[in-house]
Design a protein around this nucleic acid. Structure first.
Length: 564
RNA sequence: GCGCCCGUAGCUCAGUCGGAUAGAGCAACGGCCUUCUAAGCCGUGGGUCGGGGGUUCGAAUCCCUCCGGGCGCGCCA
């Protein structure tokens, strides 16, 4: 599929001692210079020649056959002018025959992925910051599934803990509340605990009662968290995010596997009871290098367990399922925590999951905080996106039924929201801005969808596109070539995204492809092409582009639209 | 203070396992709908790649250092 591989063979045959990876092929800075460029720095060194001399030497010594029209040295570079028709056939054939698998390396066949993401505290409606975890995790899952992995998506439900206790105490009538009211109750409960130590103390008491297994308390905790979880899943579901397993934290309160861990820690002399009667791990005994973050508390003086203690049991549970890849999507604030957990697990002779971090989405005023109510709710964000999209669709798609228009508007809204968040590298902070994240023009999801709608429009009028290609395909216009080589690079993009556990390159790829398609669209008429062969070839290029974009958007969790 | 991440155009971001004149979008200005969807296209202006050192034939990319921002560092989860 990589169109450059076939150029390497005659060079390798002519010069001994060169390996394929020494030949650094890539796109030239401008198409006027050539279709493909070879950087000779590495290979020249091996051949014991100056780069410029080596480039010149290749150009006179090597015969590339009919696939190459001309080879021109330019200093240390060697520029190839290709027989584009031949390359076009090979690239388009691959895309049109591999279809929904085009781009997948297939390396996940027979392998499994266990991924935990989102895991929002069930105490309120999710905000945009949390959504980065959910979207990033969901798209990673889609990426691995695309590669052939059998994925199992886990959601850890933090159904115990202080925050739930306070909520239960404060909102006695929780069963009568609707989900959207819970956030206010949660904010009030925290404010109250802040100024009223007695109330806060009651929260801990309730927590202890819960852990002792008091059935009535357990029921109340369950009711609150169930209401919240359902509400959260509804909002996330709108974005196309779904889970296979919900693991309730309360299930891991008394887990026998923790005894093993404690045993191992004791052997390392790494666990002790401190002056305030808490059970604490000294991580410096098991590999932690610095003083900061050295201590890790497992249990409070009253015997109730800390989050991390339960999470140890949960993590062991996940790992015992034996997946080939175990991913754990975490905000960057969890970095030290994950390292601490990993050290403890290792000390106990267990393996830890592979964490993948993302930086926070910030408001201009600072970090979002559910506890303080300083948030942009995901549902509000989606509603606003949907209403803006609906307005646009009303004006644009007058020939469609209201139902069809509504469906399109929702899909455009989701596309704008998901794309805006996923296209940024996960290790970068994002300053949340309504306008830029809800834009439908420029570098956006809707722009990519719009390209798909245009292709669909052409293909509807064209009819059946032949899947077979023979001989030299008459696609030699620069904008056809640029588009085609971009499509051909999709497998490499997917491979790199998988390796780096980064979705952003996929979004960038979709954007570039859509842009190159649009240039082609303006330069090269499809239906009104000059010859029948050209008409067919361009329709095939359209079909290949749509196929590739659909696959890329699929990883992003965005639907390619027929019309918009 | 210590550790990790980030700093590229007025704004939001690509590009970072070193390679030819640093790329998009938004915003600004000027054009383009009797030809496949104007959510579009073409053009103009806009950059000390945070500062300074170093390594290299070659640095936005690697190393050191300083500055600025984010995150974390013993009974939140």
């Amino acid at each position: 599929m990589n169109p450059y591989k076939t150029l390497a063979e005659p060079i390798l045959a002519a010069y001994h001692g060169l390996a394929p990876e020494d030949l650094d092929f890539g796109p030239p800075p401008k198409l006027e210079v050539g279709d493909v460029a070879l950087r000779t720095f590495v290979a020249a060194k091996k051949a014991n020649m100056k780069p410029a001399d080596f480039a010149a030497d290749i150009s006179v010594r090597v015969d590339f056959g009919s696939r190459v029209i001309s080879v021109t040295p330019a200093g240390p570079y060697l520029n190839f002018r290709l027989n584009r028709g031949v390359f076009a056939r090979e690239m388009l054939s691959a895309i049109l025959s591999e279809r929904e698998h085009f781009g997948s390396g297939g390396s996940g066949a027979g392998k499994t992925l266990l991924i935990e993401h989102t895991s929002i505290n069930p105490n309120a409606s999710p905000h945009v910051g949390r959504a980065r975890n959910a979207m990033y995790g969901d798209s990673l899952t889609r990426l691995f599934r695309f590669e052939g992995y059998d994925a199992d998506v886990h959601y850890y439900v933090n159904d115990i803990g202080r925050q739930i206790g306070l909520l239960v105490l404060h909102a006695a009538n929780i069963q009568d509340m609707v989900f959207d009211e819970v956030l206010d109750a949660y904010v009030e409960a925290n404010a109250r605990a802040e100024r009223d130590p007695e109330f806060a103390e009651k929260g801990y008491e309730l927590l202890a009662k819960m852990e002792e297994g008091d059935p009535e308390t357990a029921q109340r905790f369950h009711d609150v968290t169930e209401l919240c979880l359902k509400g959260q899943l509804e909002v996330l579901g709108r974005l196309g995010i779904a889970y296979d397993q919900f693991d309730r934290e309360s299930k891991y309160l008394k887990d026998s596997r923790l005894d093993e861990v404690l045993e191992a820690l004791r052997k390392n002399d790494a666990v002790f009871t401190d002056e305030e009667d808490r059970l604490v791990v000294d991580l410096s005994k098991i590999g932690h290098k610095r003083d900061e973050g050295r201590y890790f508390v497992l249990m409070r003086a009253n015997g109730s367990s800390m989050y991390g203690f339960r999470d140890l049991a949960y993590t062991i549970d996940k790992m015992e399922k034996g997946a080939d890849v175990n991913l754990w999507v975490l905000g960057e604030d969890h970095k030290l925590y994950a390292e601490q957990l990993t050290l403890i697990l290792r000390a106990a002779g267990k393996v830890a999951p592979e964490p993948t971090y993302y930086a926070h989405i910030l408001l201009k005023e600072g970090r979002m905080s559910t506890r303080e109510g300083k948030v942009v709710l995901l549902s509000d964000f989606l509603d606003e996106a949907a209403s803006r999209a609906a307005e646009k669709v009303e004006r644009q798609c007058t020939d469609l039924s209201p139902e069809e228009r509504g469906a399109i508007a929702e899909k455009v809204a989701i596309s704008a929201v998901r794309f805006a968040i996923l296209r940024v590298s996960p290790n970068k902070n994002v300053i949340f801005d309504w306008e830029s994240s809800l834009s439908f023009t420029g570098d956006t999801g809707p722009y990519v969808q719009y390209s798909c709608a245009r292709i669909n429009s052409i293909l509807r009028k064209f009819g059946e596109v032949p899947g077979e290609l023979h001989g030299e395909i008459p696609l030699d216009h620069d904008s056809e070539w640029t588009l085609m080589t971009k499509l051909a690079s999709f497998p490499d993009t997917v491979a790199s995204a998988l390796e780096r556990r980064n979705i952003a390159p996929i979004a960038q790829f979709a954007l570039d492809t859509a842009r190159f398609f649009t240039t082609f669209y303006h330069d090269c008429p499809v239906l009104m092409a000059e010859t029948e062969e050209q008409r067919t070839a361009r329709a095939q290029l359209c079909a290949a582009t749509l196929r590739t974009l659909t696959n890329a958007l699929g990883i992003l969790g965005i639907e390619a639209l027929e019309r918009m």
